[in-house]
């Protein structure tokens, strides 16, 4: 175990969390909605992979992306009435949707965890000099970097990407210019879903045991990252997600076992500290615009 080894693993986990965080940030940007149920997109993808365990890889991947995108677009429709409501109701409602979807998963698949076998051969290690890393680590780094870049390009270069950025910065003015809220919101959910589906495939390689709360457990730290980084800007939210994944992996390696149980306490104390000292997030530039009653 070298320092470099730890760092490579931490970067890989950080990138996967960054993808999840970016999905949350994309939707928040255009809708001012923190979607607690984002985790259930991961859960849906994981169960899709589970159900296609014995089928060819292409079928499994198609099922995973299909399930995640379909659920995300359904969420977009369900959340439409929320556009005119208070932040409190929004927050509680997405929590309710998350609860509902977990209950559905429980009813359909039971509480017992089951193992996804798709791409499990990626768990084999490869030697690079002194370093022994698992293939999935390298693939996660590659795919993570690729998806972050691709999303950045879509936002920078395409018309709908430009409209999304404008709507996130100043929704009223964007609307006055004719930007259709429903178009940018639907596109944000779509992008978030594609990224979430890719993250799911890689996450299930690393953590194959799928339960109804699979995604929820992943989305909570990602959400912490988003808030710590700065919810108001996509870049800072994504960086925050990366930081939390990175920190979790490093601390998990470095901390002694009896200190590790208090990892959550340390992380969430950090959240409170950031909220108090830098309400716009560590990487945010200004005071948060959502800093309202």
């Amino acid at each position: 175990m070298t320092v470099l080894q730890t760092l490579v693993d931490a970067v890989a986990l950080g990138l996967l969390y960054a993808l999840v965080a970016m999905g949350i940030g994309l939707v928040f940007g255009v809708m001012r909605l923190v979607n607690f149920a984002h985790g259930e997109l991961l859960t849906a993808g994981a169960y899709a992979l589970l159900l296609t365990n014995d089928m060819p890889l292409a079928v499994g991947l198609a099922a995973c992306f299909g399930a995640v995108v379909a659920l995300a677009l359904a969420m977009e429709v369900v959340y439409r009435p929320l556009r005119t409501t208070t932040p409190t109701t929004m927050l509680v409602t997405t929590f309710a949707v998350s609860f509902l979807l977990q209950a559905v998963a429980l009813l359909a698949f039971g509480a017992r965890g089951r193992n996804v076998g798709v791409l499990s051969e990626l768990n084999r290690a490869v030697s690079i000099g002194d370093l022994r890393v698992r293939w999935v680590t390298l693939v996660s780094i590659g795919v993570g970097a690729l998806l972050l870049t691709a999303t950045a390009l879509v936002l920078a270069r395409t018309d709908v990407g430009l409209q999304m950025r404008a709507a996130a910065m100043d929704a009223t003015t964007a609307q006055l210019l004719g930007v259709r809220a429903s178009t940018v919101i639907r596109f944000a959910f779509l992008l978030a879903a594609v990224v979430a589906a890719a993250a799911t495939v890689l996450l299930t390689v690393q953590r194959p045991l799928v339960t109804p709360s699979y995604g929820f457990q992943l989305v909570i730290p990602a959400l912490v990252g988003v808030v710590v980084g700065g919810l108001d800007r996509l870049v800072s939210a994504t960086l925050g997600g990366f930081a939390i994944g990175f920190a979790t992996a490093v601390l998990g390696d470095v901390l002694p076992a009896d200190g590790r149980v208090f990892l959550d306490t340390a992380l969430f104390l950090l959240v409170i500290l950031v909220l108090l000292v830098r309400p716009g997030g560590l990487f945010g530039r200004t005071r948060a615009a959502w800093e309202r009653v």
Binding site: D159, L162, Q163, A166, M169, D170, T173, G178, V179
Partner: peptide, 23 residues
Amino acid sequence: VPERRHIFPELTVEENLRLGLVG
């Protein structure tokens, strides 16, 4: 043309104009 202009300060001038094309 809204009061206080409401251009998007973080976007480029060209991007601001492209947003005008949306309508």
